[in-house]
Amino acid sequence: MHIVVCIKQVPDSAQIRVHPVTNTIMRQGVPTIINPYDLFAVEEALRLRDVHGGEVTVLTMGPASAEDSLRRVLTFGADRAVLLTDRFFAGSDTLATTFALATAIRKIGETFGAPDIVFTGKQTIDGDTAQVGPGIAKRLDFRQLTYVSKLVSADPDAKEIVVERRSEAGVQVLKSKLPVLVTMLEGTNEMRRGTLEEAIAATRAEIVTWSAADAGVEDMQKCGLRGSPTIVKKVFAPSARSEKAAFVEAEDQTPAEALVEAIFERQPALQEDLAALAGGY
């Protein structure tokens, strides 16, 4: 079985600061991490390989420094890492991103064997769109199984896969055919630590590094900003409300009582709503 996992190196969003004057992101010194959702995809891929044999190839698109994240996935036991890096990819929106990744996955197929499953996390923590997985599937003409909460079975011989997929009203049990693209929900498995041998091998492993041309991109107009139908016209910090919060000061009451008083003073109708909700007396 050949499994490709797409990951993204993202800024640790808990550490992002906005410049108070220019309203731009202060990227300097912000540590990067592997998009946390992708780790569930990595683990699921490794588990499948351990059961069925085969290889796991991990793929990312990003700056040269994204090599760090690839190397980390190698320490978990992935067999190969591919870094897609080129200034032509800069400024890609989701449509241009899916073009680049799908092109690279095709090239991976030609070079290392056709993938049976492509995994991604359900979304990234910096873009939060959840659109790249479905876009890759469409471009590769793979079926897609998104928001997968459980991989029930995969049969490489019969080319069949059964998963549980979370929907708004419950869980769908779906059967589909390989090759397929799967996006994994969080909390579906626990990431392994990897062995010492794997860690040592990872530090020495050669990362396959491809430019757009290496990956087989023929039309650079489909990459990066030029291949992106969407345009970011402005980036801004939200304005504060015209009035700040009214601060509650306790005088002859406790702060808690004063707060309750302030709430009902502001919205008298709430008292009735709350009495009804709290109900049960």
């Binding site: 992101i25 890609s92 929106d93 449509l95 873009g127 769109t129 790249v132 969407t230 980036v235």
Partner: peptide, 8 residues
């Protein structure tokens, strides 16, 4: 979409 919108 703009998935990781580009820094202006």
């Amino acid at each position: 979409m703009a998935e990781a919108p580009k820094a202006p």
